[in-house]
Design a binder for these strands. Structure first.
Length: 384
RNA sequence: GGAGGGGUGGGUGAGCGGCUAAUACCACCAGACUGUAAAUCUGGCGCCCGGAAGGGCUUCGUAGGUUCGAAUCCUACCCCCUCCA
């Protein structure tokens, strides 16, 4: 089955739809757990299925370094290799030109970089990124882009954007697979003008979907939302919009409201491994003292395996003892939290009550967050 | 009974005349984390005042002593460990 996106309904800028892929349907809004190296850290595919995750993201960059694209191809493709039957989207490695900036060098041809694994020298071009993703057999491939740091000047942002466009075209031309979708990445920093220009240039090349890249890289939140909002208004309505790298509960709820369909983020799983757990009343740290004797689950109303089966005190203990189960349970919980958030958002959109849903969620999530901070501040003050 | 070694902040354990309110690790208390080089990183951790800079007070088994100055040297005492009998 070739890739197809269907928009089911809208509620203001918010959209409910679905992406059909060779490995199944993805209802949107959708959150993609991040499986950088072919594994969502600390959780198994069974867990992902139980969580209700419809699609996961993996990374071409990491997989090419280890274990190597050719090996995965020989093992029957990434799906078989990692034991995941559902859809997979791979990032091209574009983000690593930023996050591993000190190890990489950009040229028009592509990016040369040193492996963080063994120091060896590697090269990735738009053509290779496409070839590799085809070899991995993933459902959605991303065009290689250049994601500049937030601190970059206007000229550098423009340069990165224009290079991204040229690379996107090369990816488009190199892309052969009829089954696999290819998404392009809009760049342009927080400049309205550049973003409009980028969206127009890439839309003209006709991709299967459009990602908004270059955000959540340290810019003020207001600028993120402003840019996302602009993209929600600008990108073609009949194609999926993927906001790359955003995944805090607040960002998800806000950005769905601004017209985004798909998200990925390492935050839920990374934060989980450090004891940070999402609840409707804000993020809590189960490693902290207040949870030592809490008999109830982390979140009374959560239907995840961790909350259904274990007390907060037990999770607290697992973290203190550095038991490996802690990472799994916490990751399962956070992934279920954001996945359920997607389900609830979709339902709200379908019922034409998205604004209400969003405002209600944010008010509660932030209010308690703020109350907790306030009480912490007072605690500090009293101690001193 | 004889010979030797040792007692340092919640724990392990450095220091062995001034640079030491005292290294480091752990524990503990917090914070950060957004297309994952992350089961990571950062800060705090004797008491009091201060937002901080900083200031004051009390600490290295106990009690004395030597010295301008002691966790560091001396004496006595208490306790612990090892080996021999």
């Amino acid at each position: 089955m070739p890739f197809a996106f269907r928009l089911d309904c809208t509620d203001g800028p918010a959209r409910a739809g679905s992406m059909d892929t060779p490995h199944g349907r993805v209802p949107t809004p959708a959150f993609m757990p991040v499986a950088t190296q072919g594994s969502v850290k600390a959780v198994a595919p069974d867990d992902l299925a139980a969580i209700g995750a419809a699609i996961v993201l993996s990374n071409t960059y990491h997989l090419m370094l280890r274990p190597g694209i050719e090996l995965i191809r020989e093992m029957g493709g990434l799906h078989r290799f990692m034991g995941w039957r559902g859809p997979i989207l791979t990032d091209s490695g574009g983000f690593q030109t930023l996050s591993l900036g000190s190890l990489s060098h950009l040229s028009e041809e592509g990016v040369t970089f040193r492996s963080h694994v063994d120091g060896s020298e590697w090269f990735l071009s738009p053509e290779l990124a496409v070839e590799y993703q085809e070899a991995l057999g993933v459902d959605v491939a991303m065009a290689l882009d250049h994601c500049p740091p937030y601190e970059s000047g206007e000229a550098a942002v423009r340069e990165a954007m224009e290079r991204t466009h040229r690379w996107a075209l090369r990816c488009r031309q190199a892309h052969r697979s009829g089954e696999q979708a290819l998404f392009a990445v809009v760049q342009g920093g927080v400049s309205r003008e550049l973003r409009l220009e980028s969206a127009a240039a890439l839309t003209a090349m006709d991709f299967d979907g459009y990602a908004v890249g270059g955000l959540s890289v340290g810019e003020p939140k207001a600028m993120t939302y402003e840019t996302v909002s602009l993209m929600g208004e600008t990108l073609p309505a009949d194609k999926p919009r993927y906001l790359m790298g955003a995944g805090s509960p607040e960002d998800l709820v806000e950005c769905i409201g601004l017209g985004m369909d798909v998200f990925d983020c390492s935050l839920p799983t990374r934060v989980a491994r450090n004891g940070g757990l999402f609840t409707p009343d804000g993020r809590v740290n189960v490693h902290s003292a207040p949870f030592r004797e809490r008999a109830g689950p982390i979140d009374e109303n959560c239907d995840c395996y961790a909350c259904a089966s274990f007390s907060a005190a037990y999770l607290h203990h697992l973290f203190r003892a550095k038991e490996l189960l802690a990472y799994r349970l916490a990751s399962v919980h956070n992934l279920r939290f954001v996945t359920r958030l997607m389900e609830e958002a979709r339902s709200a959109i379908v019922n034409g009550r998205y604004a209400e849903f969003r405002d209600g969620f944010l008010a509660r999530y932030r209010a308690t967050d703020e109350a907790v901070r306030q009480s912490q501040r007072e605690k500090w003050r009293r101690r001193r």
